[in-house]
């Protein structure tokens, strides 16, 4: 049978033979659970009993749940503060690091280190930094120079930025490396030509560097957006006593999903939230690709 195939057909058989493994993997590990999650979102299930049909009940409940809207807003706060800020900081660092020769490798390693550190360990250390006196590093410093205490985590307004700070810091290393790779790939001759023409650094940055970095920026924006939309470890570990608190002011969507699924065991409701998160991620990514791709 195989022998009677043409060379072209044989190639196709081989190609599919090799592709079968990842295809199977994705079907079992990705697509089946995704489909199942969408199915569960239309059902009620507490992990123990049988699943019963709920129709759109879970989605209606979600729409009418004030906590969900609060959490939805928080999720976008993480995105809208986190992505531009981390993009700006990482670009500034990468731009200057790129021009630096002295201890270049060492500095790059220092910036990359937080990215390799466990988010859990980092979150706990920052959590202790943020405590009031007598334990917290920041508040002890403030107290030693006679400035009043700042409630970092124990405040409905300060807690979200306080949690976002280490999350941004942790992601910087990766973004810096990507930016530096992007900067290195810009041909030197463009800069030489510009300098011969006597153009200032601002114009070089604005007219040459940034436009040519566009693919890099698109990648980092999409990548870090997905990261901030899915933020969980930092929030969970910095607020374990009252996950997402105080008063849900730091709770992102992923944490709400986790709570609903594994403390309340309301799998249907959690699945509905997951479908919403999936849709948000999809839409945000598509929109960003669209906006940043064409001129």
């Amino acid at each position: 049978m195989y022998k009677s195939l043409t060379i072209r057909q044989k190639q196709i058989v081989w190609a599919w033979g090799f592709l079968a493994l990842p295809v199977l993997f994705y079907t079992v590990i990705r697509f089946y659970p995704t489909g199942n999650a969408i199915l569960i979102s239309f059902q009620n299930w507490n992990l123990l009993g049988t699943r019963t049909w709920a129709g759109f009940d879970n989605y209606i409940k979600l729409f009418n749940d004030p906590v969900f809207w609060k959490v939805f807003a928080n999720t976008f706060k993480y995105l809208l503060i986190g992505t531009p800020l981390s993009l700006l900081i990482s670009f500034i660092i990468a731009y200057h690091l790129d021009q630096l020769r002295f201890m270049h490798g060492f500095l790059r390693m220092l910036y990359f280190l937080p990215f390799m550190t466990s988010a859990v360990a980092m979150a706990w250390v920052w959590r202790w930094f943020y405590q009031p006196v007598p334990t917290g590093l920041f508040n002890n410093l403030l107290a030693s120079v006679g400035i009043g205490q700042i409630a970092f985590l124990n405040s409905t307004t300060n807690a979200l930025p306080a949690i976002l700070a280490p999350a941004i810091w942790a992601g910087l290393g990766f973004q810096i490396i990507i930016f530096m790779a992007g900067l290195r790939s810009i041909p030197k001759s463009y800069y030489e030509a510009a300098r011969i023409d006597g153009v200032g650094w601002w114009t070089i940055l604005w007219e040459i560097t940034l436009p040519l970095l566009k693919p890099t920026i698109v990648f980092i924006v999409v990548f870090s957006s997905i990261g901030f939309l899915r933020i969980f470890d930092h929030v969970f570990n910095m607020t374990t006593n009252n996950p997402g608190g105080p008063l849900n002011s730091t709770k992102p969507l992923v944490l709400m999903i986790y709570d609903t699924a594994f403390s309340s065991f309301d799998m249907g409701y959690a699945a509905a939230q997951t479908v919403v998160l999936f849709t948000v991620l999809l839409v945000v990514s598509l929109v960003q690709l669209r906006i940043l791709r064409d001129k």
Binding site: N154, S155, G245, P246, L247
Partner: peptide, 11 residues
């Protein structure tokens, strides 16, 4: 109950 006390103490 956690939120009840937070509302009083923090807000």
């Amino acid at each position: 109950l956690v939120q009840m006390v937070d509302k009083i103490i923090l807000e």
